[in-house]
Design a protein around this nucleic acid. Structure first.
Lengths: 342, 342
DNA sequence: GCGGTAACAGACAACGATTACAGTACCTCC
DNA sequence: GGAGGTACTGTAATCGTTGTCTGTTACCGC
């Protein structure tokens, strides 16, 4: 690899002139320099630039698991925004482990100018690692304990859960179950509260045994669904509060040979990749995914482009709307027959 | 951020001693240095290290589209291997564009020690960008024109297509259609040849109108499927040669209200995320995904850890086996009735 | 012809780490 | 006591770039 010194020598000027030429300043020998650059196939060394300038021109993106289509979509949204900019993306996975997240954050704060983080768990308070380094951070999907410390992009979890509850109520369901996430996460809490409170507002108290927790993963959703579908009286509708648990739920329904929506209505928070192609197609709460990532990246860019002496700006918190996507997996309560029987 | 000089000052030693301490050499004042390091929360600046050592401790991973679950799985496999190593991962997307791939490669060759590349298209010969930089590259899934230039990890496309053809033949199908990929890609060619040749070997010539091309994307698969399902006589079985086109195919089948496998058997190359949960569950050619990524990363690590003066090693080409996963979407040819009718 | 001022030039010092080199202390052994 | 070895130390050069500082030149108006 040739260096700026090689170019300078070939063009018969100083390295300073080459540097100036590269940064677009007027330079007398610009023709000779340009010629030398192409001849030597010169590309400035990004590492040296970073050392000198103190900016790495990289951002770090930390997700729990890239194979989760939701996270992949967020990353895609981020990439769409970075596309024409100067920033490259470091991608790291935490596997939902607080310890690993700690390591990853420590590593990336040294290598990146800014971070987009989907926290693994909320106990794993990222403030400790992140505050001292002073680099800007945007949280996506989940929030940190100290909401005001970082910019964040989240969705209206409470509202989404309310939409789900209202939809099921409208269909006439009363024995309604939910598969929630851990209540020590904001997302878990909000979706739980939004759902339970809406039911309560309609005078329906959810049976304790119908209030399951599935750990936001496929297996947890599957086990929870098995318990729900085996309970008597069984729920006539089940709301799963994230995509992975919905997959577990569908697997359980499938294995038990239970018909949807004739015997039980099911719906999820988050669409599935093939949600529309399932039989019946999945009713769900839809939320923006790529748009969430894109928005997070724009927030981050705004921070990165701020001059160092700019007055500190308060953390921005963006809440994105979700919508109800009614397809075939929810239907009227299979009431009369089933009810009369007992 | 504190520097090695700060630590040295606080510990009352030279920067050289601190550096030696950090690299594990015996140092007299190691206690004072350790204390100073923790007190100042010292973390060595990776950029400075890179500049000095000439190694960035990063690798670049270039995929066409991270929202494709197959590519996401490959990335996951790569991450699993990097987990405990010193390497960080730059992730870039090419959006299947040769031009964008060109830019990305140019950018990453300057910032990474090695590259794992899933080429966007094969016309976009990556050799031109990559050869001069001398950094090791491993190709995944698709190959470059000059096979011997780079390590690669691919799957047995021909064998997979053969398995698919044999499966359909065993079920008694004769009017068999395929939705292939572009024939200017190795993958497209191999899957096409494997399928067509196997049919021919059984004395079955595929109708020209049943030999569709779907561009390896959802829309292409959908359009091709519409044409196939509308053709007369319609095929009794359709083989789609990648996951995206399979989604398009399923969408078309769904919209037209055609029953599988009663009216038409469908199968795909690559499993789908929810393939097992579809009704009927999807028969497909299964291939390793995360394992492909992990293997690629190990190949790359081997190159990266080679001393600079090592004798040049020939390119390694690894072909991974695929398997047939029979589920419900393929069945016996709906023969008698349909056949007799004409 | 001269002072003043653009408009550019090159030398050199950073940025933060590593490492070759050249000490310097201390110990051992004759 | 001195030679020679061991075990460490600090100084300074280096990686490739950029920005500051200090020229140097050309051209302007008077």
């Amino acid at each position: 690899m040739s260096t700026i010194a090689d170019v300078a020598r070939l063009a018969g000027v100083s390295t300073a002139s080459v540097s100036r030429y590269l940064s677009g300043q007027r330079v007398r020998e610009h023709e000779a320099i340009e010629k030398a650059c192409t001849e030597l196939r010169y590309r400035p060394n990004p590492t040296a630039r970073s050392l000198r300038s103190g900016r790495t021109r990289s951002i770090g993106v930390v997700v729990p698991d890239i194979t989760n289509p939701y996270y992949a979509a967020v990353v895609k949204g981020i990439q769409d925004v970075t596309l024409d900019g100067p920033y490259n993306v470091f991608l790291s996975g935490t596997e939902e482990s607080a310890e690993r997240q700690h390591d990853v954050l420590l590593e990336l704060t040294g290598r990146a100018d800014g971070l987009i983080l989907i926290p693994a768990t909320e106990q794993s308070e990222p403030s400790r690692e992140l505050r001292p380094s002073r680099i800007p951070v945007v949280l996506v999907d989940r929030e940190a304990e100290d909401v005001h410390a970082f910019d964040s992009v989240v969705v209206d979890n409470t509202g989404g859960a309310r939409l789900a509850a209202e939809h099921l109520l409208e269909l006439g369901h009363e024995r309604i179950a939910m598969i929630g996430g851990p209540l020590n996460t904001t997302v878990g809490r909000e979706r739980h509260a939004g759902f339970v409170d809406t039911l309560a507002g309609a005078g329906i108290e959810m049976d304790r045994s119908h209030d399951e927790e599935g750990g936001f993963n496929v297996e947890g959703g599957y086990q929870a669904a098995l318990r729900l579908l085996g309970s008597r009286p069984a729920p006539t509708a089940i709301f799963s509060t994230n995509n992975l648990m919905t997959i577990g739920l569908l697997r359980a329904v499938n294995e038990l040979g239970i018909r949807t929506p004739d015997e039980v209505s099911v719906m999820g928070f988050d669409d599935l990749d093939l949600g529309a192609l399932l039989t019946p197609p999945l009713t769900c709460i839809d939320r923006p995914t790529e748009a969430q990532g894109a928005l997070a990246m724009r927030l981050l860019l705004r921070r990165l482009e701020e001059p160092d002496d700019a007055p500190p700006r308060k953390a921005t918190r963006i809440v994105m709307d979700v919508s109800l996507n009614v397809r075939g997996s929810t239907g009227p309560v299979p009431a009369p027959a089933a009810k009369r029987r007992r």
